[in-house]
Amino acid sequence: MSDNEVDRTIENHMKKIAKLLPNSFETEDLLEDLRSHIYESYNEKVQKSPDDDKMHLITEVLEALGTPEEIAEEYGKVQVNEEEKKSTPDRWIYYTMRLMLAILVVVLASWVVSIVTEGAVDFMFAVVVLLAFAVLEWLVRTQQTKDA
């Protein structure tokens, strides 16, 4: 089995895991960790048993890693625990603080834009546009959280 085939086997496994996880930055991070783990484990096995069939070695690595379902299940459990933790009064304080901070950043950024362009960009217009972007970003994030 060539190195290309090993790479293909790894990528196929990664795709199966990715399909079961939400499409988010966190998932990308997790997949990066898993890919790195697979290569570490595989290369260690190749060093220990250079004469063994590479297909056999990569199969062993993927078996030890767990099935995509097992990994997704653990990921789901961690997410549920985090959601439960967020369901406290602190959550409202956190959201209020974030909202205040977002408004402050929008106002400051609009003011800077208005000053830098010497009034060519109207302050209120900049506030409205930046607020629209902030709301859009929030909607995307909310959708990602729901998918999780």
Partner: peptide, 15 residues
């Protein structure tokens, strides 16, 4: 454990 299940735990501890 299944090694892949370690990473969601590490992510949680990071969070």
């Amino acid at each position: 454990m299944k090694e892949g299940t370690l990473y969601p735990i590490l992510h949680r501890l990071r969070k």
